[in-house]
Nucleic acid binder design. Structure first.
Lengths: 252, 252
DNA sequence: TAGTGGTCTAGACCACCCA
DNA sequence: GGGTGGTCTAGACCACTAG
């Protein structure tokens, strides 16, 4: 193979290799629970060790394999981390777990933002923004109250959607917006009057709250959302490793 | 610099660079919000571009900077992801946020595990294990009920501790155990009779539950724990990026 | 001591963004 | 078109583990 044959293509080699290895692991190859050495993998796939290591770093970060100097890599499991998109979109998450997602828009406002709202979106105080309030359902049962803020340029895309549009993420992605990073914060709160009405529960009932902020590759905030789930409907799973930790616990 | 001057040392160069950049960012250098190019950083620090990229990958994974082909890296913030150890240890977490941690052991059992318990620890059904039940406090106020399972070899280390030992992690680390990976699962439950007694709340009160499984570099499970926090005492924050996602949402 | 993963280098080409 | 980050190579030495 010639030097510099960087046939990056749409999908780089290291991602393909990572996907292949994942599949191989899931299908039960490597019964001994250990991966071939990096050198071996490189030879088998006709690539350099550096590329193999990129693939393995991906698996490592997702908790599929461990790594320790001196010994072969150990297989931990298939580690079902979701696609990034499923983490953002209630709709595609629901479909991925075999449920039928639904949504009903209860409020769609185009107005100047409150100070805290503008702050969340990194906008000047008083900037115009979009606010959307929706009830989300699984198999027609309400499970989540969703409040989302969009900067003007983003929310405008959603203005034409009907009140029963299922996904609000899909139109945004179709529009060419690129969601690169997410910051999640998870805690427990009690339902206010509005939550109670939306989810048909007594005021004060406990809810699992997930607040999210999404940014594009240049750091511009694309949306901020506050999702409140009924107990028992979801749980959040996180993998963290000593090498790369991207989770924290805050004083409530 | 000679080829192969891999002065890996205790702390590799790329980690030092990452730490330096973090500090520089926090201290307000780079007022324009953009990082110098990789080439520039490499020249400034006398290292190769590959090493610089390792450092930047770390910052990227923690949400400190973004990256996009064609444009300089954009600074997102100081992104306060905690040290891996603080995520594992209630004690060191509490101290890091300026609280006074405490603990009182309510049960310390050495017994054969239930089938589900052995499964969590990857042990044969019926294996001996240690079970510890503790009330954890912040500034002497109970905020969390902690139930932990240890395989025999690990739990044995804790047998000599008194009922008011504050940290159970420190002795384990001192013993030479290496915690490499954590799997967290976060959801909402209601207090059972035992929780109610420990936390002095009515039975059925909502609690934020974090279940954790820690493994060493070879994949051996070192402990499993079930922590139940009072509402308002903690929140969990996770960063995920399109490149490396290690979080998922499950149907409750 | 042989073999593994961890770190590092010096070079290359490519895809992309912006002036 | 010039500069940026993304991908890839082929080599090197080191630190560690295990037989």
């Amino acid at each position: 193979m010639a030097v510099g044959d960087a046939s990056a293509a749409a999908r780089p080699q290291y991602r393909k290799l990572a996907a292949n290895l994942r599949e191989a692991i899931a299908s039960g190859a490597y019964q001994d629970g250990r991966l071939p050495s990096e050198e071996t993998l490189a030879a088998q796939h006709g690539m350099s060790r550096g590329t193999v290591r990129q693939a393995l770093a991906l698996l490592r970060a997702n908790g599929v394999v461990t790594s320790r100097r001196g010994t072969p890599r150990v297989i931990l499991g298939t580690a079902r981390t979701q696609s990034f998109y499923e983490l953002m979109s209630f709709t595609s998450w629901a479909r991925a777990v075999g449920e039928e997602p639904g949504g009903h828009t209860l409020a769609f406002e185009h107005r100047p933002g409150e100070p805290w709202e503008c702050a969340q979106l990194d906008l000047e105080p008083g900037s115009m923004l979009y606010f959307v309030l929706r009830a989300r359902t699984l198999s027609r049962v309400p499970v989540m109250a969703e409040r989302t803020l969009y900067p003007e340029a983003v929310g405008r895309v959603l203005a034409d959607l009907g009140p029963d549009a299922i996904s609000h993420m899909d139109p945004l992605v179709d529009e060419g917006l690129i969601f690169a990073d997410l910051e999640h914060s998870i805690d427990l709160i009690s339902a206010n009057a509005e939550d109670a009405r939306i989810l048909d529960i007594p005021q004060g009932s406990p809810l699992l709250r997930e607040r999210r902020r999404a940014t594009d590759p240049s750091g511009v905030v694309l949306h901020w959302s506050d999702d409140r789930f009924l107990p028992g409907t979801v749980s959040f799973t996180v993998h963290s490793s000593a090498a790369v930790t991207s989770m924290s616990r805050r004083r409530g």
